[in-house]
Amino acid sequence: MLVLDEEQTRAALPWPELIEAIAAMFAGECVMPVRHHHDMDVPGEESATLLLMPAWVPGLYAGVKAVSVFPGNVRRSLPAISGTYLLSSGATGEMLAVIDGGELTARRTAAASALAARYLARPDAEEMLVCGTGRLSLNLMLAHGTTRPIKRYRIWGRSEQAAQKIAAEARAFGLDAEATADREAAARTADIISCATLSGEPLISGEWLKPGTHLDLVGAFKPSMRESDDEAIRRASVHVDTRAGATSEAGDIVQPLKSGVLRLSDIKSELAELVSGAHGGRSHDEEITLFKSVGAALEDLAGAILAYETVAGRK
């Protein structure tokens, strides 16, 4: 049985291959039950969340991810997200691999956003704003840079010091990146805006979005959380990773549905429909697009299989 730590998991999941693996899984026959979602009290601070996410491809592979999200970890200089992925044979049930769940989650989440941007962002997108300074921030920059010719990156965070740190890490990868304290000004010029936060209130106003902007909402995975306002929903063509997940868990979708700002019929597509060609994605250069993801277990399974087959020498 393979055991892959954080560094080994990262090395086994290069961006181009991971993006293609997720696309293939969305186009395939993966079985994905509704995930378990449990709130856990943490005395003296924000509640934590336990997620259990199973998926399998009949006869081939089966897996489950156990992930915990502790928002209070930001004050302890610890990652908010941690977890473990268990990959088994779909033919015998034999345990094949134990994979670092935090790194798998960060990379597959960013890869899914980049996959969506392949269909929804302008082909000539050159400037990106990232809101958030957690583990996902650098991953989002690197993943989006795989599918679009991005030349300039800006990072905004509630902590200027944290934003400066992420910008320095991005520059170490050769990216033209800088921290910004002016979220609105950066949003007004960005071609792609990615938000990966646990915000309880909107960070991006629809009024700031220039024609052609692609808004990528990755955080705010509870109905009470939100990263965009109603005007962003009104102005944008709305797409989601899965309708079932986004309409039950994502505040950026659940709240507008509840208030009537958004109707179910207004959701143009889910990621599987973009991958299959059932929906054509962006229709013109001036269109504002919005992609909301809450995460899908098949993305984890795709990444886990890729990591296992890469390390085990099966590819």
Rank of each mutant, 00 (worst) to 15 (best):
E20V: 14
P54A: 05
K65W: 09
F26N: 09
G44R: 00
W56T: 10
D39E: 11
C30N: 05
A48D: 02
A21T: 05
A55G: 02
A48S: 12
D39P: 05
E45H: 07
I81A: 06
M32G: 00
S77R: 15
V57D: 00
I22P: 11
A24V: 07
A80K: 13
A27N: 14
P79W: 11
G63C: 08
V64L: 14
A24K: 14
G72A: 06
G63R: 02
V42F: 07
D41M: 01
R75F: 15
L50Q: 06
G59Q: 03
G28F: 08
G59K: 03
W56K: 08
S68R: 04
Y61S: 00
L51P: 03
E29R: 13
V64C: 12
M25G: 04
D41E: 10
P71Y: 05
H36Q: 10
P33H: 03
V69D: 02
D39T: 10
R76W: 03
H38Q: 10
H38P: 00
R76V: 07
V64E: 13
S68I: 11
S47T: 02
L50N: 05
L60G: 03
G59Y: 04
E45R: 13
M25D: 08
M40L: 09
H37S: 05
R75Y: 10
V74I: 15
A55F: 05
M53Q: 04
R35V: 05
M40G: 00
Y61C: 01
E46Q: 14
A27E: 13
I22V: 15
A62N: 02
N73P: 03
P54T: 07
P58C: 07
Y61T: 00
M40Q: 07
A23C: 14
V34P: 08
P43F: 01
V42W: 07
R35T: 03
V69Y: 08
M32F: 00
A55R: 04
G28R: 13
A21H: 07
V69G: 01
V67K: 06
P54H: 07
S77G: 05
I81Y: 14
V57F: 00
A24Y: 00
W56C: 14
L52V: 15
P33S: 01
T49V: 14
